[in-house]
Design a protein around this nucleic acid. Structure first.
Lengths: 161, 161
DNA sequence: CAATAAATCACCCGAAAGTATGAGTGCTCT
DNA sequence: AGAGCACTCATACTTTCGGGTGATTTATTG
């Protein structure tokens, strides 16, 4: 499963390539039997492959995802465009530079979810005082004074999604 | 120069495609001595328009932007992918459904920026008590109890960027 | 082994945030 | 003209946050 996802793009390209050849051969085959004019043949190929190109690029660049939303008091599944940039890649450099520790990052992520210190403490099985200490350290390391600012800044630094 | 880097992936794939065609033609040439001029012509057109399609789609879907970052104590310009989804489009339906008023939305946006109630009050030239009222109403309408949650939820609903 | 860093916890205190409730003003729409 | 709504402000009270300070334990590393 992981392998498929990993090489999705490549496989897609390869498949498109195979399809391309197939279509070309098909077009040629029809040309041999019914002698159409060369212009129509070339034009068809041009159009076909133009569309194919757009399709391929679109497919690679814009994977779709299903989400569930509430519409008119009903839960409806809808497909939305999720660009490839949506897959969050943590800025490891920024993380290192900020000197935020692993535990602090955990706390930061929960803060970003909107949890209170008490809730975070419960989630991580530690005292609320510990969370407070982590928060204080985070504020210093992110150079902010409020949790909302911390979340905002961490997001712009791509430390959290 | 920027153009080359911009479409590196696409061009690379296209080049591989061309090479593949070339190899195929070479192989065919060695096996059967037939006139392949038409095939080459069609193949060229196909390739050309495939590339054109990919190029067009890429142009539409993947604008890149330059950002300045600090790397090894030096300011370096880097190109990052900015998907078209980056241009925020407010979910007007969600906004209407939530019944959040214009003023409340203003407050919400400032909260998302990490401002305190006092700062928001100053920014909007109103009393801090007014902001508190707005916040209370926002919490009800967004079905949350904390400002961090409000921001988080509003973002998932695409009410704010 | 000593030094350093991370993670843990505690206590105090003031500031900020959030809750509950009530109320006045101005605009719109029927 | 009255109902409804958005916006405004206030008071009182509770809870949470954030700053300051100090302390212990456990790894890691020079």
């Amino acid at each position: 499963m992981a392998t498929w996802k990993k090489y999705k793009t490549q496989i897609l390209y390869a498949f498109s390539l195979a399809l391309l050849f197939l279509l070309l051969k098909l077009a040629e085959y029809r040309l041999l039997i019914v002698d159409h004019s060369l212009e129509i043949y070339a034009g068809s190929i041009a159009l076909l492959f133009l569309l194919l190109g757009i399709w391929i690029a679109g497919k690679i660049v814009k994977p779709k995802e299903k989400i569930s939303i509430v519409e008119k008091e009903r839960i409806v599944e809808k497909e939305i465009y999720v660009t490839s940039a949506t897959t969050f890649v943590r800025n490891e450099k920024a993380l290192k530079d900020s000197e935020i520790s692993a535990r602090e990052l955990e706390v930061l992520e929960l803060v970003a979810k909107g949890l209170s210190n008490q809730e975070i403490a419960a989630a991580l099985f530690v005292s609320i005082n510990t969370i407070k200490t982590h928060m204080t350290n985070l504020f210093v390391k992110l150079d902010v004074t409020r949790r909302t600012q911390a979340v905002e800044k961490a997001k712009t630094l791509f430390i959290i999604p």
